[in-house]
Design a protein around this nucleic acid. Structure first.
Lengths: 140, 140
DNA sequence: ATAACAAATTAGCAATGCTAAGTAAAGCGG
DNA sequence: CCGCTTTACTTAGCATTGCTAATTTGTTAT
């Protein structure tokens, strides 16, 4: 099974490769991964400021600004001036934005789902447990 | 344990999150992720052609060409004309290239290694097996 | 009132993915 | 042997997405 260091390297490389594969497999070609992540987060947590979004996605404010601009032009979200602090704007999903999130979520993992179906029950269980462990690792 | 679709979503999110985390945790600033992956693969599998490298890393030939150019300029690898087929060149690590792989491998996953050390033997085994499965998924 | 700070934005750079098109070599049917 | 197709690699140029630096505008503290 190898040393812990070897396991690390193997896990790291597999994770990065699979991540690339998943990114390549996205359904809606008009919406990048980062863009969809923003819509999904807004859908789950309601209106947020630019800085809050940037912090959660671990990108710089200018990067997030560009992403939000793009999504605003596409009509998926709007900026609303914050009454309490007029430097800020609260970014909120439009109806169209909510729609795209709910419909995309269903199709999003179609590719991966068909792969998992081809695996044995045991292998699926391994991956399911690994997903939990990896989630924990990422939060640390 | 959930449906297969739920497992897909969970695995997908964990993979992408962990990938982001791993990328953020990179030690060596002089060598990008993609560049190091190429060196590591060559170290493990010996000389390969450009097309073979591109296929394994799932990038286009021109992308891999640029990466290889960069690594060649840095002196980490060389192109050797293939005697049997002179369209090809066999790409092989130099001594410096081998050195950077072996020394970097130790530090590269330091973050992940310390996390894995905190896990139980069973959880580590799960992740090790998952790494194999994920590698296979990515190649499909 | 004014200095310091904070949020959002704009401008511009770097890395890294791609496709399209070009070159050189190999393989093949006549 | 000749010309056509395919293959391997390369070059050129574009799109995306990350960044830092600097600007604008608004808030807060002295």
């Amino acid at each position: 099974m190898g040393t812990i260091a070897e396991q690390s390297t193997a896990l790291r490389m597999s994770t990065l490769r699979l991540a690339r594969r998943l990114r390549a497999e996205r359904v809606d070609p008009s919406l990048s991964d980062g863009q969809f992540a923003v819509l999904g987060w807004l859908h789950k947590h309601g209106p947020l400021t630019l800085t809050q979004l940037a912090e959660h996605e671990r990108v710089s404010a200018p990067s997030m600004n560009r992403t939000v601009n793009c999504l605003e032009e596409s009509g998926y979200l709007v900026r609303e001036a914050d009454e309490a602090d007029r430097r800020r704007s609260n970014i909120r999903l439009t109806g169209t934005g909510r729609d795209i999130v709910t419909t995309t979520l269903k199709q999003r993992d179609a590719w991966l789902t068909t792969r998992l179906r081809d695996l044995s029950k045991e292998d699926r269980a391994t991956l399911a447990r690994a997903a939990e462990l990896m989630g924990d690792l990422a939060t640390l």
